[in-house]
Write a protein that binds this DNA or RNA. Structure first.
Lengths: 116, 116
DNA sequence: CTTAAATGCAACCCTGATGTTGCGCTTTCT
DNA sequence: AGAAAGCGCAACATCAGGGTTGCATTTAAG
């Protein structure tokens, strides 16, 4: 088997929390804003979310736990931004899964057509 | 077609439940088994999961709700398999996000270097 | 120095996701 | 027909996720 062909490949245990972090509307929107507007403070990011600043803070830390974002003090503000490295890793993993699924899709097609 | 703002692009509201469905170890493993072993019955899929058949059933329906898998009766068995079409869509969306993030990463790099 | 802004902390509440158990129905096998 | 396999349904229990509120702390502004 070619399973440990590369140590660079993201393992399943790492993927679970990553997807879980992405599986929330507020967090996905936060990523979207950071993606479009660059580094922002918590208060700024809280505007228009419909939830409390505290809630946003937790979401940011949730994203930080999986390495998607990072933060830095700046005076009395806490500035958050995306973490490029992790984003690349995530992208690679997603491609990895997609490929796997495409292969499976082909194997599956034969089976399905055989049944119907 | 223009992909960036077109209606063909998967919207954020659709992405949330998709990621949420992938953000569970048991479900991700189920997808892995289906991906590798083709269509399987619930009982088969339950083996080695560490949870009840009922639990597995719910996970399968959870995956089915977001269109990742589908099922079909076959005698007294319920056979589940991957849903190729949806997988393609998911892949496309993931690529979409990855690209977006890569662009953001570049914009970000300039900002960060400017700060330090 | 005094006030306002931006956060951090901690206690709480609540709903939904997970998982289990028990029971009944349908299909297969002998 | 009788027994066993494979499921579906439903009631229950549990716990983490998501959100809120109140108050203390640090930093910028006047």
């Amino acid at each position: 088997m070619l399973r440990n062909r590369s140590a660079a490949a993201l393992q399943l245990p790492d993927a679970v929390p990553l997807f879980a972090a992405l599986g929330d509307a507020t967090r996905l929107r936060l990523l979207g804003r950071l993606s479009a507007g660059g580094p922002l403070s918590i208060t700024r990011l809280s505007e228009g979310t419909g939830v409390t600043r505290q809630a946003v803070t937790r979401h940011l830390y949730a994203l930080g736990d999986v390495g998607l974002v990072r933060h830095a003090r700046r005076g009395r503000e806490q500035v958050w931004d995306l973490n490029p490295k992790r984003l690349d890793k995530a992208k690679r993993y997603l491609d990895q899964i997609a490929t796997q699924w495409n292969d499976a899709a082909e194997r599956l097609r034969a089976f399905v057509e055989d049944q119907e």
